[in-house]
């Protein structure tokens, strides 16, 4: 990142992380400046999800630190980060399948926004959720589930939003719609870090793209700069 960029809202500095004795991240540096969408791309097993887990507090790095709005938050519990405006929508579907839609939204209120407001925002953006508010979330279609997860990201008005594999197992049309919402959230000033395997979809939304390979960020640039490198990273070369 160049020098004139204001202090990043989220920053990983030299982060190492390991599962037991197996090191997955070997010194990751990554920063998300205010109001930007950063896409973290890379092949399977590169450590993208682990990097996101470190950022959200779910994993404590073995070395290095995590900064949110300039403050060192290394080792702070994920629930405390969540209550302070760092919202994470994890891989898979970030919903509770055995709770109803409304109850799922109620779980979003820990971040400080009252239920009424959460519901208002969610239903306005996704009228379909309003129709299904007393339905168990697990019985909805994959796309609807992901909308519910996104509704949380939208309604709690986070300072930083972390998105992991938003598109996993979803039809391309739905993915496109979801990324439209990501763009809308970005316009409201939220900084977003998106981890994604579906590189092409996210590149239309991202301001900055970073490619991760083998536990380190190999290249950072604008989407057009990194695009041609993707095929080698994904399908070998």
């Amino acid at each position: 990142m160049s020098d004139h960029v204001p202090e990043p809202l989220l920053e990983l500095r030299g982060v190492h992380a390991a599962y037991g004795s197996i090191e997955v991240l070997g010194g990751v540096d990554l920063s998300v400046p205010p109001g930007t969408v950063v896409a973290l791309l890379g092949p399977n097993g590169a450590g993208k999800t682990t990097a996101l887990k470190v950022a959200s507090g779910q994993m404590v790095p073995t070395k290095g630190s995590v900064f949110v709005a300039g403050r060192d938050v290394t080792g702070v519990a994920p629930e405390e980060l969540a209550r302070r405006g760092l919202t994470t929508i994890p891989e898979g579907r970030g919903i509770f399948p055995n709770l109803t839609v409304r109850e799922n939204l109620q779980m979003a209120t820990y971040a400080g926004v009252p239920l009424g407001r959460v519901e208002e925002v969610a239903y306005e953006r996704f009228p379909r959720l309003k129709e299904r508010r007393s339905q168990l979330a697990g019985t909805m279609s994959g796309g609807e589930q992901q909308m519910l997860a996104m509704a949380r990201g939208l309604a709690v008005e986070p300072k930083v939003l972390l998105l992991d594999e938003l598109s996993m197992g979803l039809a391309p049309l739905v993915v496109e719609e979801l990324y439209g919402i990501v763009a809308a959230i970005a316009r409201s000033g939220t900084s977003i870090l998106v981890v994604e395997q579906f590189a092409r979809t996210v590149l239309g939304v991202a301001d900055v793209a970073a490619i991760m390979v083998n536990g380190a960020v190999r290249r950072v640039g604008t989407p057009s700069q990194v695009e041609h490198e993707l095929s080698t990273a994904y399908l070998g070369g």
Binding site: S167, P172, V175, E176, E196, Q197, F198, A199, R200, T201, V202, L203, G204, E227, H228, L230, S231, T232, Y234, L235, G236, G237
Partner: peptide, 24 residues
């Protein structure tokens, strides 16, 4: 390719589909 990379509105030029097969 679209399963792996997602389908954008327009496939970018020079997309991997055109890449030579024997990359090694």
């Amino acid at each position: 390719l679209s399963a792996y990379l997602g389908t954008g509105p327009t496939p970018a030029p020079g997309a991997p589909g055109a890449a030579p097969v024997e990359a090694q």
